[in-house]
């Protein structure tokens, strides 16, 4: 139990790293702004309401926030990679009085916290657009972003454990980001895809996350939209934790 008291300290360290350069958080929000107010706004005008039977700008708006969450979550994996290969900090971290499982768990929790902080303004903006800003469902919105981030942090830490060079890390990260963005329902509904792509699309965590967010304005309870993300996110987080433990063998 006393070991678990170390978790907030390690999470705090990760959050401090994020805030060590507040400029970075500003840039991430700028990225979100470009995605939402430039790309999504323009596509919203290119695709009339009659085609999708809904406002396309609102349809893709949550995607802009999840893309930011994905970038922030991958940044955690990149930091773990840099600690080992560039800063040579891994051995120092392992000398800390925290058992490795606690350390691994805390790094994942830290990554999620960073991602939720980085997307905090974005989640508020999208919640406002969805009319749930002053409603208890706004907590569900943050929970969805947090669960999605949990899965992606797990993935990115796994990647950082196995990527021997930054080029490999960046390439695999790009491939995962392409899969999450373009082979999901972020931009279009499942029925637009050719049938052979449908299984890939419906098993995409981004699909679950954006669909959960889109269902919030009509949701009666908070459990329904969130439940679909819980198991896959925990599985990815467990993968990340196992990879971190493997990586921590030095």
């Amino acid at each position: 139990m006393s070991n678990l008291r170390l978790v907030p300290l390690i999470v705090e360290r990760d959050i401090r790293i994020l805030f060590s350069d507040t400029f970075l958080i500003g840039i991430m929000f700028a990225n979100f702004g470009i995605d939402l107010f430039v790309t999504a706004a323009t596509f919203g005008r290119l695709i009339p309401q009659s085609v999708l039977h809904e406002n396309y700008f609102l349809y893709i708006a949550p995607g802009s926030n999840f893309v930011t969450a994905m970038v922030a979550a991958f940044q955690s994996g990149r930091d773990v990679w840099r600690e080992k290969y560039i800063k040579d900090l891994a051995s120092y971290l392992l000398t800390l009085p925290a058992p490795r499982r606690v350390l691994a768990l805390s790094r994942i929790a830290g990554g999620v916290a960073r991602s939720v902080i980085a997307t905090f303004p974005g989640t508020l903006v999208i919640s406002y657009l969805y009319g749930i800003l002053l409603d208890p469902r706004v907590f569900a919105a943050f929970l969805i972003v947090g669960l999605f981030s949990l899965g992606i942090v797990g993935l990115s830490i796994s990647l950082s454990a196995f990527a021997s060079s930054i080029e490999v890390f960046v390439t695999v990260r790009s491939a995962i980001q392409l899969y999450l963005s373009f082979l999901s329902t972020l931009f279009y509904r499942t029925d637009v895809f050719p049938s052979f792509l449908v299984p890939i699309v419906v098993s995409n965590p981004m699909t679950w996350a954006v669909e959960a967010f889109r269902s919030l304005p009509h949701a009666q309870g908070l459990i329904g939209p969130i439940s679909v993300l819980v198991i896959p996110s925990l599985v990815f987080a467990a993968l990340g934790m196992a990879s971190y433990l493997w990586y921590a063998r030095l």
Binding site: F43, L46, F187, Y188, V192
Partner: peptide, 11 residues
């Protein structure tokens, strides 16, 4: 993927 699918929706 993206251009091909989105062009089906764009008017």
């Amino acid at each position: 993927v993206f251009a091909f699918l989105i062009s089906e929706l764009v008017v």
